[in-house]
């Protein structure tokens, strides 16, 4: 993403007199149809909820209050910190972290392996890794669901070869959701790491080896620090979408393990009908993501100086 800020020598100013006209369409479209709606949503989070859906244009902190505090079933007990929604956020963060770690464990060796292939076959490997991404996420999640359900092919295979006695009950568990997230975003982890490893000069490894460093030491002390930007980029590309994911928890988690995405969706499309609360939860999610991204931007800046 840093490439877009134009720090190369090919930046020229030929089009600068008309640049306003060139940039205006994108500014207007995104500003009007995304920025403005987000600001409106921020406003909604401070409004009063209308009974059975909708909003009343009256200022109220009740959405955020409901998020943090439990005033009892009837709304009249003294406020106690309510952990329900905070737990949903924590659970989502944990699920997203789990998915990121899974992606890292599988993605790093894969990216490294591809980067060390001869030039011609590298493109083929990358191709192989990215093709599944082009398949609709819904379809990929559904096929994962089909695969791991109690009566699905995977359990049938394990039962037939005698690996297990009873079907592995994976569907509708937290692990299934993490598996789904991992499956959805794996290529996002592989590609940035690959880009980083590709730029690594393996001469360093040879020098270290001449100095009697073991391969493990080389990996840990030399390669990893160099590849760190790629790892961070990949982790963010997996972590952020996983935080707000909706499909995996819904289809694979049995709609019982609420994550942030399901919580928000339920406010608008489901039974709950509390718009200001949905808006508040969305704002909190957005803030979380922006904080993560800001850390990333700072880390990038530091790396480049």
């Amino acid at each position: 993403m840093a490439a877009g800020t134009g720090s190369g020598s090919t930046v020229s100013a030929i089009f600068s007199p008309v640049r306003l006209w060139l940039l205006l369409p994108s500014w207007i479209v995104i500003g009007f149809f995304l920025l403005l709606p987000v600001l409106l949503m921020l406003t909604y989070s401070f409004l009063t909820k209308e009974f059975r859906g909708g909003v009343i244009w009256e200022f109220s902190l009740s959405a955020y209050d409901q998020f943090l505090f439990d005033r009892g079933l009837f709304g009249d007990e003294p406020p106690v910190i309510k952990w329900t929604y905070i737990n949903i956020f924590i659970r989502s963060i944990l699920q997203a972290t789990g998915a990121t770690i899974l992606c890292l464990l599988i993605g790093f060796p894969t990216a490294y392996f591809i980067a060390t292939r001869p030039m011609q076959s590298r493109t083929m490997w990358l191709f192989l890794i990215t093709i599944p991404y082009w398949v609709n996420l819904l379809i990929r999640t559904v096929s994962m669901k089909f695969l791991i359900r109690d009566t699905g092919p995977l359990n049938e295979l394990f039962l037939n070869i005698g690996l297990i006695d009873a079907p592995l009950h994976v569907i509708n568990t937290n692990f299934a959701v993490q598996l789904g997230l991992f499956y959805s975003y794996l290529p996002f982890m592989v590609l940035p790491i690959y880009a980083s490893v590709e730029r690594y000069n393996f001469a360093f490894s040879e020098v270290a080896s001449d100095l009697y460093a073991s391969k493990i030491t080389i990996l840990w002390s030399i390669i990893l620090p160099v590849v760190k930007p790629g790892i961070i980029a990949g982790s963010i590309l997996v972590f952020v979408p996983s935080l707000g994911a909706f499909l995996a928890p819904d289809l694979l988690g049995g709609a019982k393990t609420f994550m942030i995405g399901s919580l928000i969706e339920d406010q608008f499309k489901g039974n709950a009908g509390n718009w200001p609360f949905g808006a508040a939860a969305s704002m909190i999610l957005l803030s979380l993501v922006l904080v993560v991204l800001m850390f990333y931007a700072r880390a990038q800046e530091r790396d480049q100086t």
Binding site: L34, M41, P241, F246, L286
Partner: peptide, 9 residues
């Protein structure tokens, strides 16, 4: 922006 937030907004 996370997709769900965009959708809601």
């Amino acid at each position: 922006v996370p997709e769900i937030v965009t959708a809601v907004a």
